[in-house]
């Protein structure tokens, strides 16, 4: 593990939404709320959350596609939002992205070879070498180079995702942001793509920011895992410690919701009853813990106070007053709030 390649500090991205016609009042949507993360070169950071939790906005902001409300994103020590256009163009070389929808992220009117060649052309790669280089890339991701002249719709979802990956690695970037790269794919294809991503990481020393809603996928690819709920990071730890002893009740809820492909275990399982729906208007509740409304172990104290994001053990941080200590949230009455908080 090397030094920090990417540092995200107190990043906030708020969207304002005018509510109603002629009304002055503006609703603020806190898509990303004070997120602090760091990512070491060569490792994979998994970001997990439900849809609408702000994980995609986070990715887009890191890519420079969204302007932050406040906070900084440092890439190799450089604040990416202080760069001018030319510097930004150079930076783009080092940060590439793989998208969720393999079909809509490829231009339907371009040959796949040209799609993969696009980043090379944008950075002045000599014209003569392009075809050879693209063929190498196609071979690398498991697409036959003979398919250079085909259009994207002639490929299946998994193959399109491979093409998207080839495009992302064409410039030998340092960081690849993967926004749900496998969630649109079938299970059998999912495994292929994850394996491919892991192979490429090993070969080119790539760093991934891997966004997903699926903890079981993240477990298999990420060195460190961050869980996001309503724009806030609620738990952040190394893979092993994260899955061995998750502290945040939300993490427990996510884990318990994953259906197991094992009927006996599934029946024997003690599932956390999930309260309420995912809150729709995110960010309107500024008081108390964000997770209060759905938390199985919520106390009155949580409604009024915002938990700090603190180290529970070294390298394992969580934002909860009552971190789960014994791997079971169900039916556990937490100890008295006053004594455990102080």
């Amino acid at each position: 593990m090397g030094k920090d390649l990417l540092q995200v500090k107190d990043l906030k991205v708020y969207f304002s939404k005018k509510s109603g016609f002629l009304k002055k009042k503006q609703d603020e949507i806190r898509a990303v709320d004070k997120v602090t993360l760091s990512l070491k070169a060569g490792e994979t950071l998994g970001i997990v959350g439900e849809s609408g939790c702000g994980k995609s906005t986070l990715a887009r902001t890191i890519m420079g596609l969204e302007k932050p409300t406040s906070g900084t994103v440092l890439f190799e020590g450089q604040d990416i939002f202080s760069l001018n256009r030319k510097q930004m163009h150079q930076l783009r070389r080092d940060i590439q992205m793989v998208f969720q929808d393999p079909f809509s992220s490829l231009n339907p009117r371009m040959k796949v070879g040209d799609i993969i060649a696009a980043p090379l052309k944008a950075y002045g790669y000599p014209n003569k070498g392009i075809r050879k280089k693209v063929s190498e890339l196609m071979d690398l991701v498991g697409i036959k180079p003979e398919y250079y002249d085909r259009l994207p719709h002639e490929f299946s979802g998994g193959q399109c995702q491979r093409i998207g990956i080839a495009r992302a690695i064409a410039l030998k970037p340092k960081l690849i942001v993967c926004d749900e790269p496998v969630s649109a794919l079938d299970v059998s294809i999912q495994a292929q793509i994850i394996n491919l991503l892991k192979d490429l990481q090993k070969e080119f020393h790539l760093t991934y920011l891997f966004i997903s809603h699926d903890l079981s996928v993240v477990k298999n690819i990420a060195n460190r895992v961050a869980v996001i709920y309503l724009g806030k990071v609620v738990e952040f730890a190394e893979n092993e410690s994260f899955f061995n002893q998750p502290f945040h009740p939300y993490t427990h809820m996510l884990l318990s919701a994953i259906p197991l492909p094992d009927p006996r275990a599934e029946k024997a399982r003690n599932r956390i009853a999930i309260k309420n729906d995912f809150p729709v208007n995110a960010g309107s509740a500024s008081r108390g813990c964000v997770f209060y409304s759905r938390c199985p172990i919520a106390q009155d104290y949580c409604r009024e106070h915002v938990p700090e994001f603190v180290n529970i053990t070294a390298d394992h941080r969580a934002a909860c007053f009552y971190p789960v200590k014994n791997n079971s949230v169900v039916g556990e009455a937490p100890s008295d709030p006053r004594t455990s908080v102080k």
Partner: peptide, 16 residues
Amino acid sequence: AIPSLKLTLNDRLVSI
């Protein structure tokens, strides 16, 4: 092929 929570980071998924 289902990514399982039983697998660890170093395990390789079996794909079809």
